[in-house]
Amino acid sequence: DLSGKLIIKAQLGEDIRRIPIHNEDITYDELVLMMQRVFRGKLLSNDEVTIKYKDEDGDLITIFDSSDLSFAIQCSRILKLTLFVNG
C-alpha cells in the first residue's frame, strides 16, 4: 500500500535515488542526514548542500528549512529533489 507513503526521488549529478519515506514529519536536518547516507561518498557532512524540489510548474524551489520541506511534501506524494553541492 503506497498511499500512505511518501516517495523521495533525489538527484545528485547524474545519480538518482528513490527512497520511500514512512514518516512524513521529517525535519530538514533529518532530510540532510538521509541524503548524506543515500549519497555516501558523494555528499560529505561538511559539504554545503542546497536542496531544491520541483513544484507543479516544474520550477526548482529551494528548501531552506523544515517548514519549506513540509510544504513541499503537502504538494506531492512524490517529492523530486535535486541536490547541489557548493563544496
Rank of each mutant, 00 (worst) to 15 (best):
D15T: 14
E24F: 11
V85H: 11
D55A: 15
L44D: 14
I51Y: 03
T62S: 10
I21R: 02
R17L: 06
R77G: 12
N23M: 05
D57N: 15
L44N: 11
Q36F: 11
I63V: 05
E56F: 05
H22C: 12
L12W: 04
N23H: 10
F64Q: 09
D29M: 08
S66M: 03
S76M: 05
E24S: 11
K52A: 12
K9F: 15
E56I: 09
F39Q: 01
E14F: 10
L60T: 13
G41P: 08
G13N: 09
S76F: 03
V38R: 04
H22F: 11
M34Y: 06
L79I: 08
P20W: 06
E14M: 08
D1I: 07
S70T: 10
N23L: 04
I51M: 11
V85T: 10
R37E: 15
F39C: 01
S3M: 09
L31F: 04
F84G: 08
C75R: 15
I19G: 00
V32G: 05
L79P: 07
F64I: 06
D59K: 15
D55W: 02
L12D: 01
R40D: 13
D57H: 15
A72Q: 05
E56G: 14
I7E: 09
T82Q: 15
G87N: 11
C75L: 11
S45N: 07
D68N: 03
V49F: 08
K80N: 15
D15R: 04
M35V: 12
G58Y: 01
K9I: 15
K9A: 15
L6W: 07
L60F: 14
Q36E: 08
G41E: 12
D25Q: 08
E14N: 06
Y28S: 00
D65G: 13
R18V: 13
F71I: 15
Y53T: 04
L81S: 01
E30M: 05
K42S: 05
S66D: 04
D65S: 12
F64G: 06
I19E: 03
D29S: 09
Q11M: 07
T50I: 05
D15L: 14
V38D: 02
K9R: 15
K42T: 09
D57V: 12
T50M: 03
G13R: 04
G87Y: 06
Q11A: 04
E30G: 09
D55P: 14
N86L: 04
L2T: 11
L60M: 12
D65E: 03
D57T: 15
R40I: 13
K54P: 11
L83A: 02
G4Q: 13
N46Q: 09
P20Q: 13
K9P: 00
L69C: 00
M34S: 13
Q74H: 11
L44E: 12
E14Q: 09
F64V: 06
I51N: 02
P20S: 12
S67E: 08
R18G: 14
Y28E: 00
L31H: 00
D15K: 06
D68R: 05
F71E: 10
C75D: 06
R77N: 09
I73L: 10
D55Y: 04
D1Y: 08
I16T: 14
T82S: 12
E24Y: 07
M35W: 01
L2I: 14
D25R: 11
G13K: 04
L83V: 11
G58A: 04
R17Q: 14
R37D: 15
N23K: 12
S67H: 13
L31N: 01
D55M: 06
I7N: 06
G13Q: 07
N46K: 08
V32C: 13
I51D: 00
L81N: 03
T27G: 07
L81E: 03
T27I: 01
L33D: 05
F71P: 02
R37A: 09
Q11K: 07
V85F: 03
L60W: 14
G41Q: 05
S76L: 04
T82V: 06
G41V: 04
R17N: 05
L33K: 11
D68H: 06
L31C: 03
L81A: 02
D65A: 03
S76R: 12
D25C: 11
Q36T: 11
I21F: 07
D1S: 05
S66Y: 02
S3G: 06
K52M: 13
Q36Y: 10
L31T: 02
K54N: 14
F84Y: 06
R40P: 14
D57S: 15
V85M: 11
D65Q: 06
L83N: 00
R37V: 12
L2D: 03
F64L: 09
K80S: 15
I78M: 06
